[in-house]
Simulated scan of single mutants.
Amino acid sequence: MENWDDMRVFLAVARAEGLSAAAPVLKMDPSTLGRRIARLERNLGAALFVKSPQGYALTDLGERMKERAAEAEVHLARIADEGQGERAGLTGQIRIGAPDGAANYLLPQVCAAIQERNPDLEVQILALPRVVNLSRREADMAITVSPPAAGRLTVQKITDYQLHLAMRSDATPLQSLADLKGRRIVGYIPDMIFDKELDYLSAIDVAGVQMASNSVAVQLQMIRQAGVGIVHDFALPFAPEVQMVLPDAVALTRSFYLVRHTSDRRLDRLTRFAHALRAGIQDEVARLERTARLTARPPV
């Protein structure tokens, strides 16, 4: 491979398994990427990909090249990390993948606090209604609601968090779960629940949801319009007209985990950021949950 820029292009296409998906990562158009890959293959005298309408699949040589290129990427990152030395502040770009509950209600203020201490740091929050693919380097690290069972990944538990049934404070009160009959239930689109830990409504004996979304932020907006649903306690302070109800009847506990590439654990910059991120999320969840409890509707 002629230079690192060629390697960077090759890795992005290999991880994305196509030109269109790799283009935003590299900030290049797909046609330019196609020409770069074709030139690289000509220079090598061998094919790295099998091209088809479904995407770019690696050849045997491409698989070996990807492994070596990924190793080189890690070594270069370590060199850059060492070059940063013992600076007081973090610099460069770090991308975090997260489910939209954490992305909407926790990460903006947590990351803002980290950036206030590190003004040269650029943080990107990738909010997705699915598990972030770290193997394709969609992000430098990810927050998940279940620890991954496979892959070369390191996992640290961040914190537990609570969820309760919630509704508008001016709605007709609920005295028991039986009163849910006839109410508009808000929840996930059933066939888009990407993690069993998100199947909140299994805790409630309801036939189905009348208002659904794959986004918890949208679900909260639906509840603000007159629905009833399971809400993260840490999201309730962002919707003051919505209150926790029947906390003794419905109380769920879930956890957030921080997932990183095993090969990144020696990168001091990412490790320092991960430490600050975990501490910030722990503090913010505790703060917001305290606020939510203070505004909970008392039993009728």
Rank of each mutant, 00 (worst) to 15 (best):
M1W: 11
D6E: 09
A12Y: 01
A14M: 10
R15I: 05
R15N: 14
R15E: 14
E17G: 11
G18N: 00
G18F: 07
A21G: 07
A23I: 03
A23K: 04
K27E: 07
K27S: 12
S31W: 02
L33E: 05
G34H: 01
G34I: 01
I37Y: 01
A38N: 14
R39Q: 14
E41S: 04
N43D: 14
N43Q: 13
N43A: 14
L44C: 01
S52T: 15
T59G: 06
T59C: 09
R64K: 15
K66S: 10
R68F: 15
E73Q: 14
A77W: 13
D81G: 14
D81K: 13
Q84S: 08
Q84E: 07
L90N: 03
T91S: 14
G92W: 02
Q93S: 10
I94K: 05
I94F: 02
A98C: 03
A98E: 07
A102Y: 00
A102V: 15
Y105G: 02
L107R: 12
P108G: 10
C111I: 05
C111G: 01
A113R: 04
I114P: 01
N118V: 11
P119R: 05
P119Q: 04
D120E: 15
D120S: 07
E122K: 15
L126G: 01
A127K: 12
L128W: 00
L128N: 02
E138T: 00
T144E: 04
V145I: 13
V145C: 11
P148A: 07
A149P: 04
V155L: 08
Q156D: 13
K157W: 05
I158K: 08
Y161H: 06
Q162S: 14
L165P: 01
A166D: 05
A166M: 06
R168N: 02
L180P: 11
L180Q: 12
K181E: 03
G182F: 14
V186D: 02
I189H: 06
P190M: 13
P190G: 08
F194C: 07
A203Y: 13
A203D: 10
I204L: 15
I204E: 05
D205I: 08
A207I: 13
M211A: 06
S213T: 00
V216I: 04
V218L: 02
Q221S: 05
A226G: 15
A239N: 08
P240Y: 10
D248Q: 13
A251F: 12
L252I: 14
L252A: 03
S255F: 13
Y257Q: 09
D264Q: 00
R269H: 08
L270Q: 02
T271D: 04
A279V: 04
A279K: 06
Q282E: 14
Q282N: 13
A286K: 15
L288R: 12
T295N: 11
A296G: 09
P299N: 09
